[in-house]
Design a protein around this nucleic acid. Structure first.
Length: 284
DNA sequence: ATCCAGGATCTCC
DNA sequence: GGAGATCATGGA
């Protein structure tokens, strides 16, 4: 991947290790806008990246370019990761190839927790709508039509009825309870970061609305823990496709983690991406 | 109309 | 500690 970092922008040559469309549209992140065919606006907490791209080049512009350099995980060698995964299991190269350019984003932890509680038993389009309305109503205005993701303090004023009005449905109570928990010292971010993946997962599971799958997504997309394998309905279908037998989500997750180890999170995202894009033509 | 979506919780055994 | 019902909402 060729990239050039300047004061307020990063210029990246598109290749097999960087594709902005794949990265944003693969279901790991929900708070972004597509103003035109060749641009995106990504919103992480109160930080904004304006992104323009064509077939050959992607330009990321921001007032806090260091933040987005890390956000897009630009220090990580995805070519090496894909080689490792294929060396573990050559049969998955087909799925990896379809996900070329995907990068696992390093997202804000609070935003990730709220987003994935909303994601439970929901579809990506609705998730994005609910979170967009949440930001528009309770987040700080950044520019015309663009609002920061609400802070914990802003969220602590949002009631269950408010969440329901935004479309969160039965998840509304979960959100109120979890916001209250996150304000306690027990969930201090630096403390959480110091925990092992196992211990951190246990802590996340004690949050209302956070079960095994959502916890794994928070671990992967928020905490950057790649030794987890979130199992949702698509991965369940994938496992059945591979093994022709049914297994509990827990056992499916363990099955893949035992194979891919610290590369589990990457492998999961490639498989998930393949499945949501091929579910129609291959009748699963 | 019924099923489904990046599932979690509660109940009951 | 594991199976089953229930939970809003909107699109297909």
């Amino acid at each position: 991947m060729k990239l050039q970092k300047e004061k307020n922008k990063i210029v990246i040559t598109n290749d097999l290790d960087f594709n902005i469309i794949q990265t944003l549209e693969c279901g790991q992140v929900f708070s972004f806008i597509k103003p035109s065919d060749n641009s995106y606006v990504v919103i992480s907490t109160n930080k904004i990246a304006n992104i323009t791209y064509d077939d050959s080049t992607t330009i990321i512009e921001s007032n806090d370019i260091d933040y987005f350099y890390n956000y897009f995980d630009l220090n990580t060698d995805y070519n090496k990761i894909k080689k490792e995964i294929i060396s573990i299991n050559p049969n998955v190269s087909k799925y990896l190839g379809f996900g070329d350019g995907i990068r696992i984003l390093k997202q804000d932890i609070y935003q990730t927790i709220i987003s994935f509680i909303v994601s439970a038993n929901n579809n990506i389009k609705r998730i994005k709508g609910i979170l967009f309305r949440l930001s528009s109503e309770y987040g700080s205005k950044i520019s015309e039509g663009i609002y920061a993701f609400p802070t914990l303090e802003q969220l602590s004023k949002v009631t269950s009825e408010d969440y329901a009005r935004l479309g969160a449905g039965y998840r509304s109570d979960y959100l109120v309870k979890t916001i209250n928990s996150l304000k306690t010292t027990e969930y201090d971010i630096n403390f959480l970061k110091s925990l092992s993946t196992i211990k951190l997962r246990e802590k996340l599971l004690s949050l209302s609305g956070v079960g095994p799958k959502v916890a794994d997504c928070i671990l992967l997309f928020g905490f950057g823990r790649t030794d987890v394998f979130p199992v949702d309905t698509w991965i369940r279908k994938t496992y059945y496709l591979f093994e022709q037998k049914k297994l509990s989500d827990k056992d499916i997750s363990n099955y893949f983690v035992n194979i891919y180890g610290t590369y589990s999170g990457y492998a999961q995202q490639y498989l998930f991406n393949y499945m949501i894009n091929h579910s129609k033509e291959e009748s699963f």
